[in-house]
Amino acid sequence: MSLLEVRDLKVSYGGIHALKGIDLDIAQGELVALIGSNGAGKTTALKALAGLLPGTGQVHYAGQSLHNLPAHQRVRAGLALVPEGRGVFARMSVEENLHMGAYCRDDKAAIVQDLALVYTLFPRLAERRAQLAGTLSGGEQQMVAMGRAMMSRPRLLMLDEPSMGLAPMMVEKIFTTIREISAQGVSILLVEQNAKLALEVASRGYVLEGGKITLSDGADCLLGSDAVQRAYLGA
């Protein structure tokens, strides 16, 4: 059974149909990529799944309908989104940001453990734990955002363009961490413009074009497909 089951999800705002009915499944522990060009509706899809945008259609998570569940309750259910542009709290320290990630938990001892775990995942953050997040580099902010999301102990982690605006070294580090998080058994839905990078870490992928899923296949098949090669990989 799927952890996340999306059927005919539609989102429109201001008269624009940003998502025209998409179907999507993620199994427990799976790493799935959602690729597509700018404006295809990738961010809209993630926001709707996180509860930040209203949508129509059926979304089932862990067997339960998410219909009308506000964003702050979806986090409690184990659905975390690392938003595009990271959304770190610039005027809070790194550690305060991470504590915000554990906002809906009250198991203090386990929170301390998870904090240590995040610092193992991102040693750089341990060095900068007292620094204001707004003063960090883009890559470090991405680490804060991902670490913060991990602090909620998600079952499904959604990442929106984690490589955006980062130096190649940093992108590599971030994607290594995505693999590590996936290896821990966390399901991941990865949205990327960098299709090659995303399909290399994912097991399956969906291609979103103009608000619709136009292709869905194993990541290897998509990487090899002529259509994807031409449209997204510049071959």
Binding site: L52, H72, V75, G87, R91, Y103
Partner: peptide, 21 residues
Amino acid sequence: GRAMRAVAENPSAAALMGVNI
């Protein structure tokens, strides 16, 4: 207080942390 500061800075990010805005 932390939740208040989070909402003041970035409401949607705060909601993503589980804060009831």
